[in-house]
Nucleic acid binder design. Structure first.
Length: 578
DNA sequence: GCCGTTTTCGGCCCGACTGTTTTCAGTCG
């Protein structure tokens, strides 16, 4: 019984309704699904607390949807959905994944050729049964086969951390063209979602054809489609797609706004425009024929009576309502970050090498303008990581003290803090003695073993760690690895409650493989008043640049400077530690 | 099916491109 589960059903119902050509209902279900997906509170909890009335309070959920939800909570099923499935027993997820196939075409393919899944579709296409259908043709059949091939090889979405640097390289190449006057990333990349489906790039140029011709001849292009006078798409050998759109200078702001999305955010903006007697599109904001804004993005929001909304917040999860009331939070920025407390130096693998590493961490920290950097190696339970025992921690301490003295003598304004990333054992105890922990500047503790405990036990385990008087920070609190490993089962609300009581700080792990806490959990933590810290969990000095991803994630969770303790100067930071 | 600072009916976001058509439906973002 999860928000995601019921959202998926609603989304599928939207597709079934579209197959039947129903008017407006599909969008209603679509919207309800999206609102459930992004809902911060668990739908089961909402119902338990406030009954069906509380469900109807959720935007996009009315009487009928609320009844569906109750039915789902009580029986695990929705009758209307079951009827749809019986009538149209197609594997929607599979078929909708094929480019160019939507509900209408899928419906025809099922009714005429009894195509239910990808396998059926491939067989039919190979036997040339599809081209002769009315509304289809040779090209469509070929595209379907190509779409299936791509699906088989494709890995789906890409990690933000992987795709952002790739996109930046391509943007830099295009920016060099003299025909390009402005260029920007857009879409979910600009919103810094943790995974990216494809890259959107917006270019301002008065010579779109030249830009598009250069774009499609970039190295590594394996497919080109949608090539028109203002836009085109390419697929790169690396497996991801890039959509390029070229517009004129006077539309830069509106185009950037439009292509940044999200779709849901834009729909609401256009409705606000209509209410004001205006029309908003990628070309600009218009009153009748007259353009009243378009050149810069800020202007679009201003003319609609809204505060400027940062891209990371544009998901239609309440940001527009706040912007209308001039009450948007001032979210944290990369430049607010004053240090990084989760850096591994691999002391256990050789202290000479490790010392050199700590020095390089310090150098890079100074380059980034940090006031402090924290070394936190794994501890003894993690043998595979050469975790440190009490004695080694004490020895490491001596060396770090020496380094700090040296920095002071040379008049550098950086302090190296000494911590560790201790292991939270199955019973919630810590694998290092309290006396040794007490001598450190701070203690991070994290779960690294026995990840498959039940919810109750895992919650108790982390709570006990937070109550330890020496534990300051919980690293990667939910344990997920993006696209690889689920979160461990925990009662997150309970953890937030105890974090608030004990002053334990939750980490926003900036590693692009984790990004843990995730955006929705950051919002909940902020609501409760739990402090957070953005750490890179660097295992090599170069990984300190992960900080950017952590900050984006914090911004997506609406965290403000005051919610994040490593925005504070050293003295203030240390006050947060027990 | 949802929603309301034109409130309980009558609206519901906008545009490009493709492939099939011969004026447009379907898909995508």
């Amino acid at each position: 019984m999860s928000n995601q589960g019921i959202a998926r059903i609603f989304r599928n119902m939207a597709f079934y309704l579209e197959m039947e050509n129903a008017a407006f209902k599909p969008q209603a279900y679509e919207k309800a699904a999206t609102n459930l997906e992004v809902s911060v509170e668990d739908i089961g909890e909402i119902y338990k607390k406030g009954g069906i009335k509380a469900l109807e309070e959720i935007p996009g959920i009315g009487k009928s949807m609320a009844e569906h939800i109750v039915e789902y909570i009580k029986t695990g099923k929705i009758k209307e959905y079951e009827i749809f499935k019986k009538k149209m027993p197609v594997v929607l997820d599979e078929l909708l994944g094929v480019e160019g196939l939507g509900p209408r075409k899928i419906s025809i393919l099922y009714k005429v050729l009894d195509i239910k899944n990808l396998k059926d579709l491939e067989n039919a296409a190979k036997k040339h049964k599809i081209a002769s259908l009315s509304g289809f043709g040779e090209k469509t059949e070929k595209n379907i086969l190509e779409g299936i091939e791509f699906l088989k090889r494709s890995t789906g979405r890409f990690l933000l951390g992987h795709i952002l640097s790739e996109a930046r390289e391509i943007i830099a190449k295009l920016a060099n063209l003299k025909e390009v006057s402005f260029i920007s990333e857009a879409g979910s990349l600009r919103r810094r979602k943790e995974t990216i489906g494809d890259v959107d790039i917006l270019v301002i140029s008065s010579k779109p054809r030249i830009v598009i011709d250069n774009f499609v001849s970039l190295p590594g292009v394996v497919k080109i489609w949608g090539k028109g006078s203002t836009k085109t798409s390419i697929r790169l050998k690396k497996g991801f797609d890039i959509d390029l759109r070229v517009l004129k200078k006077e539309s830069f702001g509106s185009a950037l706004q439009y292509f940044t999305g999200s779709k849901e955010h834009n729909i609401v903006l256009r409705k606000i425009a209509i209410e004001k007697g205006l029309k908003l599109s990628e070309y600009g904001l218009f009153r009748g024929e007259r353009m009243i804004a378009g050149k810069i993005e800020e202007e679009i929001y201003e003319k609609l009576g809204l505060q400027f909304i940062p891209p990371e917040m544009r998901e239609n999860t309440g940001e527009i309502e706040l912007a209308l009331k001039n009450k948007l939070p001032k979210i944290v920025e990369l430049k607010n970050i004053k240090g990084d407390l989760h850096c591994h130096s691999h002391w256990g693998e050789g202290k000479e090498m490790s010392l050199q590493m700590i020095k390089r961490y310090a150098e890079l920290a100074m380059k980034r303008g940090y006031e402090y950097i924290g070394i936190s190696d794994h501890t003894k339970f993690l043998q595979i990581e050469h975790g440190l025992d009490e004695k080694q921690l004490a020895e490491q301490r001596k060396y770090i003290n020496k380094l700090n003295q040296k920095l002071k003598i040379e008049n550098y304004k950086l302090k190296i803090l000494h911590g560790c990333e201790a292991n939270i054992m199955a019973d919630g105890s810590i694998d290092i003695s309290d006396e040794a922990l007490a001598k450190l500047d701070y203690v991070i503790a994290g779960v690294h073993s026995q990840l498959k405990m039940n919810k109750n036990e895992m919650t108790k385990r982390i709570i006990r760690a937070m109550k330890n008087p020496n534990v300051d920070i919980i690293s990667h609190p939910t344990g997920r690895i993006l696209q690889k490993r689920e979160e461990y089962k925990i009662d997150f609300d309970e953890i937030l409650k105890v974090a608030k009581e004990t002053g334990a700080i939750l980490e926003i792990n900036a590693s692009p493989y984790r990004l843990d806490l995730k955006d929705a959990n950051i919002r909940r933590a902020k609501q409760i008043g739990v402090k957070m810290i953005i750490n890179t969990d660097s295992h090599q000095e170069e990984q300190m640049y992960f900080m950017e991803y952590g900050v984006s994630q914090a911004r997506r969770g609406w965290a403000e400077k005051g919610d994040i303790i490593n925005t504070q100067p050293l003295k203030k930071l240390l006050e947060f530690f027990k």
